[in-house]
Design a protein around this nucleic acid. Structure first.
Length: 429
RNA sequence: GUGGGAGUAGCUCAACCGGCAGAGCACCGGACUGUGGCUCCGGACGUUGCGGGUUCGAUUCCCGUCUCCCACCCCA
């Protein structure tokens, strides 16, 4: 029979790799906690319309990378009977903002959420890119007087990220920062940019010629060397920021400077959608191949309204957890659970005694593995040392009758006879 | 979706010009009946990704297909 394999672009995370994921997640949760962020969990599937509106119907994500299906509804499922289109979430911001609106969370003032979970995009897999991938993200959102609109929030989020990467031991991260202004700025800029592109577009690569028509901002993403000289001459969004946007950006930068978070201005860093505003950023890492962006984020002051909610400025980011774990390399030496004791039952009926011993020891938080009474002692000891156990506890018929157990320290080979009631103290000491 | 590379034992990889599919590691057993690491000996290991074609004969050549890797598009 043909065996079933994981579907394209998905993968199993096996030990010991899962230890590294757990390390990343526990450090992350701890960092979020100290910045007073709280976890939010939204469904992994939503109505397709949410992403069409929340991510943008014209984006590649929505146009061709979503796992979407028609779900049969019998009525009462929050829709009339009939079919509704559902989609596995390709990102988590839209879901969070949907929940924000649905539960009227603006009544709580400023919300600082984080999430950790799987996302789904139907892309061609490659290094650091999977069809089920994991993101760690955060969203700061609230009604205008709550402070969510403040440049202090942008700076706090960026400083949090710098701390997180530092604490994970990621050495060569680089923060690239830009402001893309407000929609009005971008509308003016878009016009100017299109005009500037018109005379030179013919000299650019085919992709750029297409972008010049469809989404001029994307020209700045071009990596073709020959195009760079021309691109360098194009006007930049930074020249079109209105006074409030300029002040906002200056303030973000001043706070970053005062807390000592290094950054690089990159006025080619852009975002395509209308509700993206002001601060845009990416953290990159050298050792990730073409997928060098380890996380990205920015301000989305217009998103809530785009989804039919009240005015609610927000800023957020999403970390590609797969890439984050990858860039950890061997720097994070994670030792798996070290065995404290391997119990070697020896002889018929000794499984019962071994189970009693294991239960007692585990009750005191010792990490215990138990062999099998049919194993030869040689095999049990071999397994014990292979698994890195500190002690082997031999539970044979002799021990059971005398009440004195053989406790062997595997590193030194030293073996002692220990009475049953002193076992715990001996192992813990 | 597009382009390139690769799929052989659990893992890492060999196998000349088309001629009996191999090694190291890991696994299991023995030397050694209740004492691990070292050593020695032995064992199991495979529809060579899958399907078709050429051939007396295909891991090898051809076609298709699937998966992975790298890159493009795009993005985290």
């Amino acid at each position: 029979m043909e065996t079933i394999k994981a579907v394209k672009g998905t993968r199993d995370l096996l030990p010991p790799e899962t230890e590294r994921w757990n390390l990343v997640e526990s450090v992350t949760r701890e960092v979020f906690r100290t910045y007073n962020f709280q976890e939010i969990r939204t469904p992994i599937f939503e109505k397709t319309e949410l992403f069409a509106r929340g991510v943008g119907a014209d984006t590649d994500i929505v146009a061709k990378e979503m796992y979407t299906w028609e779900d049969q509804s019998r009525g009462g499922d929050n829709v009339a009977a009939g079919r509704q289109s559902l989609t596995l979430r390709p990102e988590n911001t839209a879901g969070v903002v949907r929940a924000y609106i649905e539960h009227r969370l603006w009544e709580r003032g400023l919300n600082k959420f984080y999430y950790i979970g799987p996302q789904f995009r139907r892309e061609r897999p490659q290094k650091g890119r999977y069809r089920q991938f994991f993101q760690i993200g955060a969203e700061v959102i609230g009604p205008p007087p709550s402070g969510s609109e403040s440049p202090a929030r942008d700076a706090e989020l960026l400083e949090l990220l710098a701390s997180l990467l530092d604490r994970l031991g990621i050495q060569q991260w680089r923060l690239e920062l830009n402001s893309i202004g407000c929609p009005a700025d971008r509308a003016r800029y878009d016009q100017v940019l299109r005009q500037a592109l018109q005379p030179v577009a013919a000299n650019l690569c085919a992709d750029c010629q297409r972008r010049a028509q469809t989404n001029p901002l994307r020209v700045f993403d071009c990596k073709v060397p020959a195009d760079q000289a021309i691109i360098e001459t194009l006007p930049r969004i930074s020249q079109f920021l209105d006074e409030p946007c300029r002040k906002h950006f200056d303030e973000v930068r001043e706070i970053l400077a005062s807390v000592g978070v290094p950054y690089t201005l990159n006025d080619r860093l852009v975002r395509g959608l209308d509700y993206y505003t002001r601060t845009a950023f990416e953290f990159t890492h050298g050792a990730l191949g073409a997928q060098n962006a380890i996380l990205g984020g920015g301000r989305y002051d217009g998103l809530s309204e785009a989804l039919g909610g009240p005015q609610a400025p927000g800023i957020g980011f999403a970390i590609g957890e797969d890439r984050l774990v990858m860039s950890l390399g061997q720097s994070a030496a994670t030792d798996g659970a070290k065995l404290d004791v391997y119990i070697a039952p020896l002889g018929t009926g000794m499984n019962k005694e071994a189970a009693r011993l294991a239960r007692e020891l585990r009750r005191h938080n010792l990490v215990v593995e138990v062999g099998e009474e049919s194993f030869r002692l040689k095999k049990s000891l071999e397994t014990a040392s292979k698994q890195g156990a500190r002690y082997a506890l031999i539970a044979g018929e002799n021990e059971l009758s005398t009440g004195v157990f053989a406790l062997k320290k595997l590193a030194s080979g030293e073996q002692r006879s220990v009475s049953r009631d002193r076992l715990l103290a001996e192992i813990q000491g």
